[in-house]
Amino acid sequence: MCVLSFMLAATPVSIAAQGASSEQANNSDSATIGTDTATERLTRLLADLSTFRADVRQLITESSGGVLEESDILFMLKRPHGFYWETLSPFPELIVTNGDTLWNYQPDLLQLSIEDWNPDESELAAQLLGGETAAIAEEYDIEAVQVATNDWEFVLRPLDQASLYQRVVLYFVDDLLESILLINTNGQRTLWEFFNRQVNEPIADTTFNFTAPDDDFLDVIDNRADNTHETDQL
């Protein structure tokens, strides 16, 4: 999932600064807790989400700070495996799964890819938003910094030196996810800021199923193990 390699009043610069703040041990207003407790706290914060809907601003920057991409995204989550990630601009794309099948629809390219969904092989961001903290804790050292009474910053550092990421930072305000910052080993940064958040509001199961448009020019690439399904029955 190329997008998953998931705004507010805060600007991208300020959120990035928040992500770096956890490494400043001399910050007297913050309290750092141990890895085990940090994992438990992150688990509790994410476990409270049965459904989550938000508008997302994605900002990808290179190591020098130059902007590579800025996107507007609609994101919806429904536990245990409902995941919806629709890029609205600048280039439309939809990635959605119901827990069994993964659809990737790119209308500009007239292409639809279909795959079997395996949550164990999903990207880190999907695991985080899906609350798979136990699996994450096996691969990352997790540090939690209490920034304010109900504001927390979590810094994840990979245990494997060959990891794609140098670190990942999650920021919660009033115990609600506000941003995720992924820093690659090559210095590239991907920032997601969540706004207009709706927590535990009803979301129909049909949201996480995709019906292919009736278009003779649509290129359907079906990589499922059982690819005998008819496109118009998706």
Score class of each variant (00 low, 15 high):
Asp174Pro: 07
Arg79Phe: 03
Asp116Phe: 13
Ile203Met: 13
Glu69Leu: 15
Leu42Ser: 02
Ala134Trp: 01
Val199Gly: 09
Pro213Met: 13
Ala16His: 05
Gln188Asp: 15
Glu230Arg: 14
Leu112Pro: 11
Ala10Ile: 08
Gln166Lys: 07
Val13Trp: 00
Ser14Asn: 03
Gln106His: 10
Ser21Cys: 01
Asp216Tyr: 07
Arg41Ile: 04
Glu93Gln: 15
Arg197Val: 15
Phe91Pro: 06
Arg79Ser: 11
Val169Ser: 13
Thr207Glu: 11
Gly66Ser: 08
Tyr165Ala: 06
Asn196Phe: 09
Thr133Tyr: 07
Ile33Cys: 00
Leu49Thr: 04
Thr207Trp: 04
Phe194Tyr: 14
Ala144Cys: 11
Met1Leu: 11
Arg57Lys: 13
Ser5Pro: 06
Gly187Asn: 07
Phe154Ser: 05
Thr97Gln: 05
Gly130Trp: 01
Asp160Tyr: 00
Ile221His: 09
Arg224Phe: 09
Val147Arg: 03
Asn184Arg: 13
Pro80Asn: 09
Ser21Val: 03
Asn200Thr: 13
Leu49Phe: 06
Leu164Val: 10
Ile142Glu: 02
Asn186Arg: 04
Leu182Lys: 04
Leu68Gly: 05
Ile136Phe: 05
Arg79Tyr: 04
Asp151Phe: 01
Asp214Met: 14
Thr43Gln: 05
Ser5Ala: 07
Glu121Asn: 14
Phe217Ile: 05
Pro90Gly: 14
Asn200Cys: 12
Met7Glu: 06
Thr39His: 00
Asp55Leu: 13
Asp36Ile: 06
Thr185Leu: 06
Gly65Pro: 00
Ser21Asn: 02
Thr228Ala: 14
Arg224Asn: 06
Gln188Thr: 15
Gln188Leu: 12
Ile60Leu: 09
Val173Ile: 14
Ala212His: 11
Leu88Gln: 15
Asp55Phe: 13
Tyr140Trp: 08
Gln111Ala: 14
Leu102Lys: 07
Gln161Val: 12
Arg57Gln: 07
Ala47Cys: 00
Asn196Trp: 08
Ala47Gly: 03
Asp175His: 08
Asp72Tyr: 08
Leu159Phe: 03
Ala134Tyr: 03
Ile60Ala: 04
Gln233Glu: 15
Leu182Ser: 12
Ser21Asp: 06
Ile203Gly: 08
Leu181Tyr: 02
Lys78Tyr: 04
Asp151His: 01
Trp117Cys: 10
His229Met: 14
Asp215Lys: 11
Ser179Tyr: 05
Asp151Met: 01
Leu170Gly: 04
Thr190Pro: 01
Thr51Val: 09
Thr39Gly: 00
Glu139Met: 11
Asp72Leu: 15
Asp151Pro: 02
Met76Lys: 14
Ser71Ala: 15
Asp215Val: 12
Gln24Lys: 09
Leu164Glu: 06
Glu23Lys: 02
Ile15Phe: 02
